[in-house]
Design a protein around this nucleic acid. Sequence first.
DNA 1: AGACTGATATTCT
DNA 2: GAATATCAGTCTA
Length: 198
Amino acid sequence: MSSLLVHSSDPSEPGVKLFARHPADVARALIGMIVTVDGVGGRIVETEAYHHEDPASHAFNGPTPRNAAMFGPVGRAYVYRSYGLHWCLNVVCGDTPGSAVLIRALEPMSGIELMQDRRGTDMLRLLCAGPGRLCQALAVSREHDGLPIDQPPFTLQPAMQEREIAVGPRIGLTKGVQTPWRYGLAGSKFLSRPFPKS
DNA sequence: AGACTGATATTCT
DNA sequence: GAATATCAGTCTA
């Protein structure tokens, strides 16, 4: 199978179609795909888009040591620490530098025992329901920052033909609250929070 | 159920 | 010094 990454400027490369687009498109496209780290992971059921012109984005005020990966090639991981405690996993994307998609929740599929050990709970619903929990379950941390999202230790592969996608406002923000760039697999029991009814 | 709190890296004022 | 793309625990109801 071919690489999902953008290592060439050939627009027929799958990675170009997937990642070199507006982060809202990419966030939508990632729903239903399967991501693993060292064989541990599952189906992506929740994402959020962050555009470089969006005040909620870490890239809004330009490059810093923390957000450097957001200004590198698309298709790489951007991993940052949240509230000093948790790690959060993003995929760098966009047609211009400085955009990314936050992966907020997974439906656990492989390596469930390892996830349970790392999380200290056997509750499937809470193993990967939230960006911090997800990174704890998959053991994602600073060492993954900047790594290609479709090469070891990562895998990323399409896994669903048709799916219904829920849309809503992003979670935990004070800026850009009204921009509805949160996406989810409709009806999934593994969301970090339900989507508000339209 | 919802409200509050503590942990504490990184950035911004 | 204050805010933040969080989570778990512990209160109050």
